[in-house]
Design a protein around this nucleic acid. Structure first.
Lengths: 140, 140
DNA sequence: TATTTTGCGCAACTTAGTTGCATTTAATAT
DNA sequence: ATATTAAATGCAACTAAGTTGCGCAAAATA
């Protein structure tokens, strides 16, 4: 059923007006099929040997997806970036859960980030990222 | 006036029961003097040539400070860790501000992180980290 | 002052991400 | 269908951040 995701990916890419390339379709398809944020390395693994994409190209595809708002970068503490499509999440004010054991990052789509006090004078908020750390259901 | 911070640092380190070493006092002193979270590299710069500490040792000191709850790690998107003493902030539920231009990370001590909905079933929350991204007063 | 345990420095390594440039390829114009 | 061209890809080499193992140095204690 991954085919559907690839078709969906192609449609989303077409919509940007930029080129529809093998790499972009493959990567976005994988991200669409995935429910959680995954790392560069995990994407490489899912691509497999036959449909392998160059390391650098993969970085550039992810960067492009991010720029086109088709995916967003999830920041975690292990100096790895993770990516996730943002078709289901609002662009701003979404929250992430990071498991302290398995390091998996999950988007908490129902959880809205809030902060109780105003920012210091002169500061401007563009985006709020909330990370809840703890144990996921698997590791608890 | 930095001397005071070093004395304070020494006292805090003594309190842990572990060894009071030159490196630990220097690094914690610098962190105490600093109001915002600073990176490994910035700490090295502040140490200067005369009181230089080995790169690896500095990592290990920061790790130790973190373990002893004398400092905490601030995660940002540039794959650099930043450290800040947590004598003034509560251990949990503190928020950070990251400037999109100068990349400076500031602790927002007055801002409490909140999330509106419960976690998925089976999940356990240990720590909540909230990062507000935008422009700081300097760069706005 | 000697002993022991802990922390430090060095060198070498890993992993994640970056840059420049030559080659290929998707879109388009012919 | 084919040529053109701008954009995307692949390669190689690099940087920056963080890690590991081990011998040596220095705090704490006796």
């Amino acid at each position: 059923m991954l085919t559907n995701f690839y078709e969906q990916a192609e449609e989303m890419i077409r919509h940007t007006g930029d080129r529809i390339t093998r790499g972009r379709v493959l990567v976005l398809g994988i991200l669409l099929a995935e429910k959680k944020a995954i790392s560069h390395h995990e994407i490489e693994e899912k691509l497999g040997d036959d449909s392998a994409i160059n390391r650098v190209t993969l970085y550039r595809i992810l960067e492009w997806l991010n720029k086109k708002d088709l995916a967003h970068k999830v920041i975690s503490g292990d100096r790895k970036w993770r990516f996730r499509t943002n078709i289901y999440t609002g662009l701003h004010q979404h929250a992430h859960f990071k498991c302290s054991i398995c390091a998996a990052v999950t988007c908490l789509s129902d959880v809205k980030a809030k902060y109780s006090s105003p920012l210091p004078p002169g500061y401007q908020s563009h985006e709020v990222e909330l990370t809840v750390k703890g144990l996921c259901a698997e590791c608890a």
